[in-house]
Design a protein around this nucleic acid. Structure first.
Lengths: 190, 190
DNA sequence: AGGGCCTCGCAGTGATCTTTGCGTTAGTGG
DNA sequence: CCACTAACGCAAAGATCACTGCGAGGCCCT
């Protein structure tokens, strides 16, 4: 309900400051609690206790579990995958899909996505995938800069991104790198 | 944590009985609260009050918000779409995809999916899509009975089901019937 | 129509969550 | 080095949630 950016205090925004340390500790606590599949509650007091800070602090900086999860998801899904640049669209997409499959297989990724979607609604959902779309866009633009035709971003999202996220979120099938690459070959049938 | 089937009392399972009426009222209350985008809490006391029953009843029949949502999602996503049977695989899939797009555009469907995923985890997620997979399987098997080759169910899920659910859950793009049919033509390029 | 079983309503209780005000401490800038 | 600002720790209070007996009422079966 408040700012759209992540809550960073004005004075403590330096990398090693106290605020940054607390922020990191809270983020880690959220991820650990989500990974510990112990039917955990994921309430603010629980997160605060695990992070070693007081619940009041978390309430004041994030306000609600939804905004906290959105913040965690945003930083978790930003800059985590290095966008490949091999000079070939197919190769780029195959590596990207395979890396994404591996990332989504991380034990703490899936619970984070699910919890964020469920608790933070539209805001949280877009926090999980906004970066992915931009990364695909970058891959396509590089190929276009080389003078080649490419599918649209929407098409790549439908053919590659969507199956990856769908399988992860809705099914219990494993996301293998091989399968991820077949998605790309279905998109680029040459 | 209890039964895997929906909680139906032994004696009151007749369509017009009191238990069935309570069950319907609670289900309706859940859907209404999810549709009312008022930053709703969706706790059991809130649902019970809206349904006109006592919270104790909801606690005893469903136990937790997660199981309640799973139950609502299961009945909401069962038998709601009539599987088309036109005699043509392409036509069947196009109609099915288009119907599913319309269904996912319903204002109360998306919040239900999101909340179920977030609160009920694996159980809830499969409750939202298990029926869909079986319906696709039925369409494919009919085509095979006609003596034709078909893609695998996994392939159809990747190409059609996944983009539909992905767009609905993770983006704010509209799910148009035209786009849904496009997904099928990419799958069946003849 | 009557008996028996199951479910619901009801009220009370303990636990947990959420918020508020105030003092303290860390970090920033002069 | 000192002062100022802002965030954090702390404690208390109000609200909400989750759970547990007990009694009443409805539904099914004979």
């Amino acid at each position: 309900m408040s700012a759209t950016t992540s809550p960073l205090p004005r004075t403590g925004s330096r990398p090693g400051g106290r605020s940054a340390r607390i922020r990191a500790a809270v983020h880690r606590a959220v991820e650990e609690l989500l990974a510990d599949e112990t039917g955990e509650l994921l309430t603010i007091p629980v997160v605060a206790a695990r992070a070693g800070v007081h619940a009041t602090t978390v309430y004041r900086r994030w306000g609600s579990v939804g905004e906290l999860l959105t913040d965690v998801a945003t930083s978790r899904f930003s800059g985590d995958i290095v966008v490949p640049d091999t000079g070939s669209l197919r190769e780029d997409l195959e590596r990207y899909a395979s890396d994404l499959a591996k990332d989504l297989n991380d034990p703490d990724t899936l619970p984070l996505v699910r919890a964020t979607i469920g608790t933070a609604g539209e805001q949280g959902a877009s926090a999980c995938t906004r970066e992915r779309r931009q990364q695909l866009q970058a891959i396509l633009e590089r190929e276009q800069a080389r003078g080649h035709q490419t599918p649209t971003v929407e098409r790549v999202m439908d053919a590659v991104l969507a199956p990856l996220y769908y399988r992860a979120v809705f099914t219990d099938q494993a996301l293998t790198p091989e399968w991820a690459r077949t998605l790309v070959s279905h998109l680029l049938p040459d």
